[in-house]
């Protein structure tokens, strides 16, 4: 067995142990910790989902808030119509996925900044629609969800474990994609899309698949969130920050890796909580500065430190510049 395989087995084992430990969190019977755990799992879902389109395929999507809000409202409306809670979560995930497929067909031919802006606008459009469509969504008044008749503690545990289960699914999805030809194709697309289509990759199909995968669990998490907080309103679930945070988390941990976004989500939550508690007045500014500093000094993310990816990236950049000058020299 070579070194790479050993490393891989150790990483898988450590991940499983970590998940098991986190799942045992309710044993401490601290509801504040449980709330943080639920938030952390939700952040991990968002970051890991973004990683499929943003990390593997390299398309800087700002659509997370759109999928999240769509999932939240779909779940809330379906639950209000009498659908059992777990089914409403599944349905919300599928609705978000279908929406992402159509959206992807429309905007994934755009590249770079153009794609980023197009994806950013989607949440705004959905926000306006939800606010105006009062008969269905309650408009700006928001939407109340049916009360669940179990104890507060039991509710906290239920939502924590459900959110964690989806986060584990998101992790599994990333693991599967990274080892499947889909992940390999997405990596090719990120590095050179024209060349990718020339080696036989159906780039449209691969990108739309990645976009749909990046939406499904976010939609489910949105519906779960709605069930958890009992009340949603458009500016809450369609907040632009919901699109930005997962990107920061993924970059903190290491975009395009399997574990990076999950680690980044936990780190981000810890920073958010610590800064918020200690610097109440200026917490947003302090958190912002901290994030800029971290990304500046850790361009490959935390995992980049471990795998030495950062060093290699510098080498790659040097190689590219020399190659460009060589090509130019050749043409001249």
């Amino acid at each position: 067995m070579n070194k790479g395989q050993t490393m891989h087995r150790v990483a898988v084992a450590l991940t499983l142990i970590a998940v098991a430990l986190i799942a045992a969190l309710p044993a401490l019977s601290d509801n504040y910790l449980l709330r943080l755990g639920t938030m952390g799992a939700m952040y991990a879902i968002l970051a890991l989902s973004w990683n499929i389109i943003g990390g593997f395929a390299g398309y800087p999507s700002f659509s997370t808030a759109a999928f999240f809000g769509l999932g939240a409202y779909s779940g809330a409306i379906l639950q209000g119509a009498g659908l059992p809670m777990p089914l409403a979560w599944v349905a919300a995930g599928l609705i978000a996925m279908a929406f992402a497929t159509l959206l992807g067909l429309a905007i994934l031919h755009l590249k770079g900044h153009y794609f980023a802006i197009a994806s950013l606008v989607v949440a705004e459009v959905l926000l306006e629609i939800t606010t105006s469509w009062t008969s269905l969504t309650g408009g700006g008044m928001g939407l109340n969800l049916p009360i669940i008749r179990i104890s507060i503690d039991a509710q906290a545990r239920l939502f924590f474990w459900s959110m964690l289960a989806i986060a584990v699914m998101a992790l599994g999805m990333n693991y599967w994609v990274s080892r499947h030809r889909l992940g390999f194709g997405l990596m090719c697309i990120r590095q050179n899309e024209d060349a990718a289509s020339m080696v036989g990759i159906n780039t449209t199909l691969y990108k739309v698949t990645a976009f749909a995968l990046s939406a499904v669990l976010v939609g489910a998490a949105g519906a779960l969130y709605a069930s958890w907080v009992f009340y949603i309103e458009p500016p809450d679930v369609f907040a632009t920050l919901t699109s930005v945070k997962p990107i920061v988390m993924a970059m903190l941990g290491g975009a395009g890796t399997v574990l990076g976004p999950a680690i980044g989500a936990v780190l981000f939550l810890a920073m958010e909580e610590l800064v918020w508690r200690n610097l109440l007045q200026i917490h947003a500014a302090a958190l912002g500065l901290l994030i800029v500093a971290l990304i500046f000094f850790l361009p490959g993310g935390l995992l980049g430190l471990v795998t030495g990816k950062r060093k290699r990236r510098v080498v790659a950049k040097k190689g590219e510049t020399t190659s460009n000058s060589a090509v130019k020299g050749g043409a001249a």
Binding site: R181, M187, A195, A196, I201, R313
Partner: peptide, 16 residues
Amino acid sequence: FPEMTALENVMAPATF
């Protein structure tokens, strides 16, 4: 594909 090894570069067409 600049960040991949030579082998991975050639694996792409061989795969797809």
